[in-house]
Amino acid sequence: MGKTFKVLAIPYQIWLYILVFVPLIAMVLIAVSNYDSSVPLNQINISLNHWSILVQRQNMIAFRNSVVFAVLTTLISFVLGYFAAYHIFQSKFKNKFIILTIVILPMWSNLILRVDALNNIFSQNNIISSIIGFSPFGNITGKPIAILIGLVFTYLPFMILPVYTALEKIDYALQEAALDLGLTPFKKFWKVIFPLSIKGVVTGSIMVFLPTLAGFAIPKILGKGNFLFIGNVIENKLLSSTIFYNHGSLLAVVILVFILGSILLLTRFDKEGETLL
């Protein structure tokens, strides 16, 4: 039995090595080389000259935009997501699975499609304004608020699900015990429920923070090119007539460092990794 599973795990191991580890190492190596599409393969050398792009004004702004929007998205998702998860958790509704399904329902359609639809609704002339005669969101597309709404809209489920899972794991008897020991319902929440759900919050925050930090589609579509994110810079490096593999790799490595930092943070809160879905 154990042997069968071992054999069945091999395809994934191969996948992991060839399609994850090897490219990852290649990316790190390219980041310290002079490799771009104009350099013949036999002239690739170690080079740190291009590291100056890290302090280029345009790229610094892109980094700042990414981090600011990622932090804001995470905070907003935390507030909205915690309320939503807590509400589902507290509700007497029998089939909570259905509510959770509704939460992840948007993910069943393509991300780009959804964001494009949002972009349409956010602009002056859209399908809704032709029905009701005015545009409910005005013409916010291209503005920061449009990007923020788009990011929260897309990544909120990633906050709700782990928080809900963490809340659901809290033994109801603990809540009764808190009341029994003289806590008011408000104090009960802050002293018992919230501390016990913090793992879910950390997991959810990382699951929202990482894709927002590295993403490029949403700011590109909803920002109308007004806001450059680090993901867009990388994309541009790889789409230009000379493909700057080394530039793109370097910026991607920086994001990777952010990711590793967040995972370290996660393991500090959640040693067993139990709330990671």
């Binding site: 033994d171 008897a173 603990l174 009764e176 015990a177 808190a178 009341l179 029994d180 020991l181 003289g182 806590l183 008011t184 018992v192 016990l196």
Partner: peptide, 17 residues
Amino acid sequence: PPYARPIHTVFQRYALF
């Protein structure tokens, strides 16, 4: 409510935090 009663409970499965 429970918090206003001079009563405390030892729960079946203890309910320790």
